[in-house]
Design a protein around this nucleic acid. Structure first.
Lengths: 327, 327
DNA sequence: CTGAAAGCGCTTACAG
DNA sequence: CTGAAAGCGCTTACAG
């Protein structure tokens, strides 16, 4: 059996209280007993049971993260950074891949609360499924508006969309199409679309946006892309709201005998490390994934520690244009 | 404050014992009191504290996963599948990105044990840092030999390596190079190298393998790739042990004015969804990521439940050649 | 400087 | 069918 604090106490010839004290470095302890206790712990290969600690402290040092799926490189990288920062700060991460499905998200949320997580970072977009605040849980959203009071961290979506659209226009594209998620979602990412539309209007063009359901079914994505070519045969520019859409589009364009950037120019969004390696020629708007993660964790931990003094409700981190050879 | 079982009991006019019984569906309870209790739980918005439950049950339903980083699409997808399968089976996932660093892995291991995880799935390759068994923890390794007694699940690495090498030879390549991780690691993935070497020898060629340190520093990867071109100017075939290496190689080849597959043919390994979307033309050996995940979780849970009857020490899942246009 | 007692929120024998 | 008691492994006032 795993040794417990009383086993250590017995072996060191002291009380459990004393062992706990040296464990937590609290109160006065003579150097001698401290050493005895440490020796006993080593001999028994003892390490504390954090479940028992959490129960007493009402603090688990656990944070939950809910996002669509780590299979998507943006979220895979985001998850890595979040977890790593958390680890360095003494927090542990409970991972939830909701696939953007409301039913799953609800179950995960309940699971996280049962497990007494101290806070949650949410990267899925189901608005207001549960009253997060009611349970006075610390929450931070990434690129999603969850409620009026939950801080959201995102890239500067409007600026990113603007850069993309303006770049395509400056390269002489006449018929520029946009691909994005569904509009009803009202995510900050919709600002990419807004910027695209604004730029188009300002330049006397008609914005056309195709919506792709973000349910991760390849079938329907493929379908929308075919649709674009069919409905807009004169397309010569595309701004995709993520790099995977951009890549699928390029693949289909080539399949149809269109050269990129010769006949169609393409700009993506995200600029993950993975897409930089696998598709370095893609011109894209890069999100600062590491700082998004860092900011989100920092805000969350402030909330957890009850320091609400200067928590920004909106944090927009700067994007960067990565010029490849697809424009 | 969060309601607890005694709050529910009070409201329902019964004892905590009774509430616990309806919660766990144990023992006889009259229909009436069951309804009363349920009503009380709803009114108070009660849900059980799993930390307290874990403490009593000595069962957390938590499993830890340690892998290099979810930033790598292979591990990102693996993580997604593992987590999703676990969720469907009532297990929760504590995520650890070790970056293949021993110091980090040790800390994570201790963290997981303190948190009383029921089992661990390990995808990093530091052999024998800790005596996993000593703590009688359920452990499964993915593509890593951790010890003689820990089950390992992997793709059929030898077969995969063989297919890749034979394909390149059949396409007429004369000077075929291999890129892999470091040999000392003795991972099952080394079988990819072994197969490559066997095929080369059998065909009267000299196998040449370049080792890339798997520490995820772009710098050194880039360096090794340049080195390949410098030391083997007549290279006309490459088998990379993962798709990211393959992609970096292709990028460098093009930069040097070499056409793929015209002058150099390339075969990768992994075949993740992400690389299928971003670099669909890559010819690669696809690992069955979903079944690797499923098998690993199933074995782990058997171990956790103490059913050691038919636990295979080695599971090799079949790979599939994905023919793109890089050979 | 150290220890006995109570309690974190649950569950499970044991009685009734 | 239901409840009082003890205990999971820890920690923190409170005494001494």
């Amino acid at each position: 059996m795993k040794p417990k604090i009383s086993d250590v106490a017995k072996r060191a010839g002291v009380s459990p209280t004393t062992v706990s004290r040296v464990l937590n470095n609290r109160g006065y302890i003579s150097e001698e007993t401290r050493e005895n206790v440490h020796r006993a712990m080593n001999e028994l290969n003892y390490f504390p049971n954090d479940v028992a600690r959490s129960l007493f402290n009402k603090r688990s040092n656990l944070i939950g993260i809910i996002l669509p799926t780590t299979s998507n490189p943006f979220f895979g990288e985001l998850t890595f950074h979040i977890e790593n920062i958390c680890a360095s700060l003494g927090y542990k991460v409970l991972l939830c891949n909701s696939l953007n499905r409301i039913d799953k998200e609800e179950k995960y949320l309940e699971m996280l609360m049962r497990n007494q997580v101290d806070g949650i970072i949410v990267g899925t977009h189901n608005r207001g499924i549960i009253n997060y605040h009611k349970q006075n849980l610390a929450v931070v959203a990434i690129d999603r508006h969850l409620s009026e009071t939950i801080p959201v961290v995102s890239s500067d979506n409007y600026e990113g969309g603007k850069m993309a659209a303006e770049l395509l226009i400056s390269k002489g594209c006449q018929s520029i199409i946009h691909i994005n998620g569904q509009k009803e979602l009202e995510t900050p990412a919709m600002l990419r679309r807004k910027a695209y539309e604004d730029v188009m209007m300002k330049n006397g063009r008609t914005p056309i946006t195709f919506e792709i359901p973000e349910v991760f079914d390849k079938q329907s994505q493929q379908q929308v892309i075919s649709q674009i070519f069919n409905e807009c045969p004169d397309i010569d520019g595309l701004f995709a709201s993520n790099d995977l859409f951009a890549a699928s589009f390029i693949t289909e364009a080539k399949k149809r005998g269109l050269s990129v950037p010769g006949q169609v120019k393409v700009v993506g969004y995200d600029g993950t490390e993975t897409s930089q390696i696998l598709l370095p020629e893609l011109t894209t708007i890069q999100q600062p994934i590491a700082s998004i993660a860092k900011t989100a964790v920092e805000i969350l931990i402030k909330e957890i520690e009850g320091d609400f003094s200067d928590i920004p409700l909106q944090t927009r981190l700067p994007v960067k244009l990565l010029e490849g050879s697809t424009v």
